[in-house]
Design a protein around this nucleic acid. Structure first.
Length: 545
RNA sequence: GCGCCUGUAGCGCAACGGAUAGCGCAUCAGCCUCCGAAGCUGGUGGUGCAGGUUCAAUUCCUGCCAGGCGCACCA
């Protein structure tokens, strides 16, 4: 049995190319793929089409030469029992048709090993730090944070599954201007509660939660000067609880205050200065980010002597590398996209490759209720919070909805649809397939002694289902390459569909021992893959609904 | 003005540059004496506009049109 059919086929094609003297393309150009439709075989490669221009020969002629050599190679290869046919089809595609036995072997492996059979060692233990949410502790988490939380956590799950060593981190903005304003907001509200007439500035935090904090601060007799820290601590506790209820747990809460105290900011400035990337102008200190493809240089110390937000951020990213991470992933809101250039510039200034930092811009989600967008204003403290979404639709539906569009796309999230327990709601479609399988397994009262023979699974729907299961690892790879978990949600709906189709046409129970037994194993396999995918999404795998 | 994201069926969306562009809702017609009908089958309906690259473009590039968001010595 082969660990990975894609690698084996790639190797086979590669050898054939060498033998034919046609190895003119870099090895990475050999791509073995799932065909768009399974009437074109089980795997396909477009290599002949790619070579056509280079060799100035018709693609089908090249394909013919390759197929001939490949057919000669097969008896010597590890795939000799698996490949049934290699054919040229269409414009010059080389399509591989596999023996059914291959699929039975793979199914058997999944049943025997469970989800471990689906695991890949792509990461080889590489240390990756994924930073996400990182909202200021000045109010409840918004919808935007909620989507980032879902995407970040799920991406981290996938990377862990692919054997990366992942740390989830939340950068905590626990000092600075916003915290000062937060403290003053609480101070004013406290005086108001004490009966004093106050003017509440527009740029202060308007939400009602400030009153709650003011009451608590009063009870604990917190001094005015401490209110910022007190309020931030109070809110942070709420944020942690919200995230935890959403199924998102961070390994590290990185405090900006601690960073400032550590002297690391000054240290990074000293290094930048030494390298000649800092200069003074108009009374401010500037980082020469234009040396690295930023639009303009950026102020790090303002003319009044205080630091901009960029100052600790430069040191923070530098510190990520110092802690041993070789791949940094940051999830930011779309309002931060202009920030990418300067942060990449800073890591380059310290000699790191800009490619070692992946910045993922998570586009906004618009909340709808019955088809009408819900208006939001953060400034006035009027926005839908993660807490409200959790209370209204639950963590499972919320996570699935946040993940089911490409991360770079806007997302419409209708609370009423997410609440519906019907086909309109894809999360139930997938969970229903899982529950249905569990139900059949519960009804199956069979203790068969007969040898299990999966080869009785010869129906089209049975083979389609097995093939769909085997696509799972390719889906994980797409998630890795695109740094986007959403493809899993698409895949799980497809796998569920294959299962429902099978279920509708073929009965599992009461089909005679041999067939029933094999079909039970088949649906056990589907359950393993569904369950694995749902687990990566952070969504429950219900046995009953 | 500049930058980012998005234009696919009446609506919401899918398609790693690949072969006959898929799915849900809506709508029309069917499928439960039988493992869960929260399911399945069939019908209707199609890539914003104009160029370019490619053997091949919904996908990549340029321009235009339309929508969303962002453009601080704020964080």
């Amino acid at each position: 049995m082969h660990k990975n059919i894609l690698e084996e086929l790639t190797a086979l094609v590669s050898r054939a190319l060498v033998k034919a003297g046609l190895d003119k393309l870099p090895p990475a150009e050999i791509i073995i793929d799932f065909p768009t439709d399974n009437r074109f075989g089980d795997f396909t490669t477009n290599i002949a089409l790619k070579l056509s221009k280079l060799l100035k020969r018709p693609p089908r002629e090249i394909a013919g030469q390759l197929v001939e050599i490949i057919q000669g190679e097969i008896p010597e290869s590890a795939l000799k029992d698996s490949i049934s046919q290699v054919k040229i089809e269409g414009a010059g595609f080389v399509n591989f048709y596999l023996e059914a036995g291959y699929f039975y072997d793979q199914l058997g492996k999944i049943i025997a090993q469970g989800k471990e059979a689906l695991r890949l060692d792509t990461g080889k233990g590489k240390k990756v730090l994924i930073e996400f949410v990182s909202a200021n502790p000045t109010g409840s988490l918004s919808v935007a944070h909620a989507r980032q939380a879902a995407v970040g956590d799920c991406l981290a799950n996938i990377l862990e599954f692919l054997n990366f060593s992942v740390q989830r981190e939340y950068y905590l903005n626990d000092e600075g201007n916003q915290i000062n304003i937060l403290g003053k907001s609480v101070e004013l509200r406290r005086r108001e509660l004490a009966g004093e007439k106050i003017e509440f500035p527009e740029n202060y935090y308007q939400g009602d939660y400030i009153y709650d904090i003011a009451k608590e601060a009063d009870k604990q007799k917190i001094k005015d000067g401490q209110l910022g820290d007190f309020a931030a601590g109070y809110i942070l506790k709420i944020i942690k609880q919200e995230l935890s209820d959403f199924g998102v747990d961070f390994d590290c809460w990185y405090s900006q205050k601690e960073l400032a105290k550590s002297g690391k900011i000054e240290e990074s400035f000293a290094q930048l200065k030494e390298k000649g990337f800092l200069y003074e102008q108009d009374g401010a200190t500037w980082f020469k980010s234009t040396a690295f493809e930023d639009d303009k240089d950026r102020v790090v110390i303002k003319s009044d002597g205080s630091q901009t937000y960029l100052a600790p951020d430069i040191a923070y990213h530098q510190d990520k590398y110092k802690r041993g991470f070789s791949w940094l992933i940051n999830l930011w809101g779309p309002d931060h996209h202009g920030y990418i250039g300067r942060i990449k510039a800073s890591i380059e200034a310290f000699g790191h490759s800009p490619d070692s930092l992946s910045v993922i811009i998570v586009q906004l989600a618009t909340i709808f209720r019955n088809g009408q967008p819900v208006q939001m204003s953060t400034r006035r403290g009027q926005y839908i919070t993660l807490r409200e979404i959790l209370d209204e639709v639950g963590a499972d539906a919320a996570r699935f909805f946040f993940l089911m569009r490409r991360t770079s796309s806007h997302l419409d999230f209708d609370l009423e649809v997410a609440k519906k327990q019907s086909a309109e709601n894809p999360v139930y479609y997938v969970q229903y397939a899982h529950a249905r399988i569990c139900s059949i397994l519960r009804s199956a009262d069979i203790k068969l002694k007969e040898e299990l023979d999966l080869s009785v699974l010869a129906e089209k729907e049975e083979l389609d289902l097995i093939k769909k299961m085997l696509e799972f690892e390719a889906v994980l790879n797409v998630c890795l390459v695109t740094c986007d978990p959403y493809m899993i949600t698409v895949y799980l709906q497809e796998l569920s569909e294959s299962f429902h189709k099978f279920y509708d046409l073929h009965r599992v129970l009461g089909q005679g021992d041999a067939l029933t037994c094999a079909r039970l194993e088949l649906i056990k396999g589907v359950k393993i893959v569904l369950s694995c995918g749902l687990e990566l999404l952070g969504i429950a795998q219900p046995e009953k609904m």
